[in-house]
Amino acid sequence: MTAHASPELVDLFTTYTSSADSIGARLTAVTSRRRADDPLIVATARDFALYPGGGRPPTVEGFRLSTRGFKELAGISHLGPALATLVELAETYGDDTWRASAARLLGQVERSRAANSAELWRDVIAVEAYEGREQAIADMVDYGCAMTARYLRAALADRDYLSARTLREDYLDGGGGAPPPVPLNALMIATFFLAGMDVAHRVLRWFAEQRVDWSRAMVVVAGQQGRPTAGVTWNTSSVAALLLGASRYELALDRLYMAPHAPTFDTPVDGDLSAVAALEEPLRRIWSHTRATVVLGELMFTGYPRYTPDGTHAPDVSDPAVTEIGEMPVIHGPDDWRALVTRLRMVLEDPRQLLSGCVTDYAVSQLVAADNHPAKVVVPGLDGVTYPTDL
């Protein structure tokens, strides 16, 4: 059967939308021109770009993969999931390749442990936000590597030892068997928090220097953030958390648009911002087109309930009776381990979450409260914790 379209009705459709000269396109163009002097902030997976408006050139601040210490800490953060993956391969799938992978991980853990030192963190990695904590970080890394190596050696010596039970009891959180002196869950939270604190410290300072008028800011989080399913809503995006914190929570959520299909730019090389500048107009059009449709709601449906963004709602898991949640739980403080470890579970189970964004929003809020002084922030799982270094 041959499909047939009515040219007359299709033309009616394109009169309003889906054509460059449509009525909708006209509203987008007018909206965009009216806001040409407003600041536009665009976040990619790696960088923030600020387009001041009025034809002035953009500025860019990198905040993730190209920054100091991120990958080094991520390697430690991933030790728990790495061991859990070996358990899954062996127990669920009966895949004997777990043994070769375990041996490889053991060799790399031992190599990393040998390279780790307070001097490495202070003089080589040299993250400003970690100043004064370098010895504590080195001790934590040493402990994480030692405990991981201990577990791997036991598993390689006895296949029956490799199990979900021993992983939890002897490594992650204790509670039976040979509980670890410090649960490795604490180490995972500390490393995620440190990474988030460093990014937040630099981003908060950079935005403060830009003196953004947040009441007029047009904000777009563009492109893929982490895994393909992650970070596409306000309350699952660590980038959104950074932006809200940078504005000291003055940025209205209805000015922040998540645009996973928007064009992005690569991290500028040697100060060349030409590719960044070329995207200003199309990115302004994306924000303006979205805004133009949003404002029609009040015009057309005054008197009906309006949509109000509620991206900050967080469930409370302090009650042990709470066994299921749909959003990240609220953290009541650096010792709220039920909420903190629940977040570790949630970033694995919820495909919307960024794995590295486990506690970024909490780190941001603590830095904002401390006027962006990292030394005044309590790092859960690090500050006040003594990691044994004689294992």
Rank of each mutant, 00 (worst) to 15 (best):
313 H>A: 15
123 D>I: 01
261 H>I: 10
387 Y>V: 01
294 V>S: 09
75 G>S: 09
203 V>K: 00
295 V>K: 10
375 A>M: 06
341 V>N: 13
96 D>V: 08
346 M>K: 14
308 T>D: 09
145 C>A: 12
230 A>K: 04
73 L>T: 09
164 A>I: 08
109 V>E: 12
248 R>Y: 06
182 V>E: 10
88 E>Y: 12
353 Q>G: 06
368 V>A: 06
210 Q>P: 10
270 D>V: 01
306 R>H: 13
329 P>M: 03
327 E>A: 15
17 T>I: 11
319 D>F: 04
295 V>G: 03
164 A>K: 13
187 L>P: 06
326 G>A: 14
206 W>G: 03
332 H>A: 14
46 R>A: 10
278 A>T: 02
112 S>T: 11
97 T>S: 15
265 F>K: 06
216 R>K: 13
183 P>N: 09
118 A>Q: 15
162 L>P: 07
331 I>F: 05
114 A>F: 09
211 R>S: 13
292 A>S: 15
18 S>K: 07
352 R>M: 12
307 Y>A: 11
193 F>E: 06
45 A>H: 07
147 M>G: 05
149 A>T: 11
243 L>F: 03
318 S>T: 14
258 M>C: 07
213 D>A: 12
31 T>G: 00
313 H>R: 15
36 A>V: 09
279 L>H: 02
149 A>W: 13
329 P>C: 07
194 L>Q: 06
